[in-house]
Amino acid sequence: MAIYLTKESKVLVQGMTGAEGMKHTRRMLAAGTDVVGGVNPRKAGRSVDFDDRAVPVFGSVREGIESTGADVSVVFVPPAFAKAAVVEAADAGIGLAVVITEGIPVHDAVAFTAHARSRGTRVIGPNCPGLITPGQSNAGIIPPDITKSGRIGLVSKSGTLTYQLMYELRDIGFTTCVGIGGDPVVGTSHIDCLTAFENDPDTELIILIGEIGGDAEERAAAHIREHVTKPVVGYIAGFTAPEGRTMGHAGAIVSGSSGTARAKQEALEAVGVRVGSTPTETARHVLEALADTAPDAAAADGTAADGAAREGARA
């Protein structure tokens, strides 16, 4: 299985006819994503050829949904128009809006995430790489060829570290990888993804990637303590970040004693999460955690086999 995105997902691309939209729509199609249309009011009624497939352009998200049954939108529009794009998608009834655009003003992100939530639309992002269910669908800019379908779920603030861990653990593979974005306001949290992975029967282990700034990782640790039974392995970026300086994402800033990588690491380790000091060490923790669960599975199989043998003897 997977979370949020499957091979049945039908994807619209808002901003498909722009340079970034064109480039990444081609990549999504190559990865097997069912891209059913683009949205651009000025080019409605046309189609765009991507190799061997012509993708229609609709004048609105609502028109795209009515014509194709789309349930996912990927937003590539410029920052000034991102709020309107997400509001339009939510009002049209889209189930999932993946907002790739970076540089969106915080007050716009607050407004459209709240509006989308009130309409029942899940927002991933903004300023994120999107999400991928390997072998099924890819909504965003995550490279599709660095991993395969497997047993690990991944949720990350960082796009680059998402790719790195996918590559490090490519031989095991992933159910779904979600880049939630690192801005101060995002539509989907670590906790949302932890809950979804906990409920996904095919996900055996969860990787949580965080970074300095805010308290999302501390809140995730509290959630893990109360609600997550699967093993979780973590990585926190920013141990050497200087106080008061923004590092990378708009939300990645340490202020005083809050938001430090050390505080986040300690919170996660206090609830049993193994936290790596590098991506490679994090991958090693994943292998160790999976190995630790293997004897339990073998013992359970043995107990079941013994029980079946006893039943056979009585028969």
Results as ranks from 00 to 15, higher is better:
Phe76Ser: 00
Gly251Phe: 07
Ile212Ser: 00
Val233His: 02
Ser47Arg: 06
Arg46Met: 15
Lys23Trp: 14
Thr246Trp: 05
Pro143Leu: 11
Gly181Trp: 07
Gly259Met: 09
Val86Phe: 06
Ala92Ile: 09
Glu226Asp: 11
Ala237Gly: 12
Thr203Leu: 09
Leu5Glu: 07
Gly210Ile: 06
Gly37Leu: 02
Pro129Glu: 04
Ser118Val: 15
Glu266Trp: 01
Gly234His: 02
Arg42Thr: 08
Glu198Tyr: 11
Asp108Ser: 09
Gly37Pro: 11
Pro105Tyr: 03
Arg46Trp: 10
Gln136Met: 15
His107Trp: 13
Ile224Asp: 02
Ala250Asp: 02
Lys230Gln: 04
His227Tyr: 12
Phe81Glu: 10
Arg274Ile: 10
Val228Phe: 04
Val254Cys: 14
Val48Pro: 07
Val178Asn: 09
Val186Ser: 03
Thr25Lys: 01
Ala297Phe: 14
Cys177Ser: 15
Ala283Glu: 02
Val106Trp: 10
Val123Leu: 13
Ser118Cys: 08
Pro144Gly: 13
Phe76Thr: 00
Thr160Asn: 05
Leu12Ile: 07
Gly18Val: 11
Asn127Ala: 14
Glu204Leu: 09
Gly120Cys: 10
Ser158Asn: 10
Ala97Tyr: 00
Val75Tyr: 01
Ile180Pro: 04
Val57Trp: 00
Gly238Ser: 08
Thr188Leu: 15
Ala261Asn: 06
Cys193Leu: 14
Asp171Glu: 14
Ile180Trp: 12
Asp108Ile: 11
Ala80Asp: 14
Ala309Thr: 12
Asp52Gly: 15
Arg225Asn: 06
Asn40Ala: 05
Gly15Pro: 08
Pro295Glu: 11
Arg62Glu: 11
Ser189Trp: 05
Ala30Val: 12
Glu281Ala: 03
Ile124Gly: 01
Gly130Lys: 07
Glu243Thr: 10
Gly103Gln: 03
Thr176Ala: 10
Ser67Phe: 09
Gly130Ser: 08
Ala299Glu: 14
Val35His: 06
Ala299Pro: 01
Asn199Asp: 15
Ile212Asp: 00
Asn199Thr: 10
Arg27Lys: 15
Tyr163Lys: 01
Leu290Asp: 08
Ile212Ala: 04
Ala114Asp: 09
Val57Pro: 01
Ile142Gly: 06
Asp192Pro: 04
Ser137Pro: 04
Ala97Cys: 15
Phe50Val: 03
Val35Asn: 04
Val155Phe: 11
Glu269Met: 11
Ser277His: 13
Gly187Ser: 14
Ser189Lys: 03
Asp202Arg: 05
Asp200Gln: 07
Ala30Tyr: 14
Val254Trp: 03
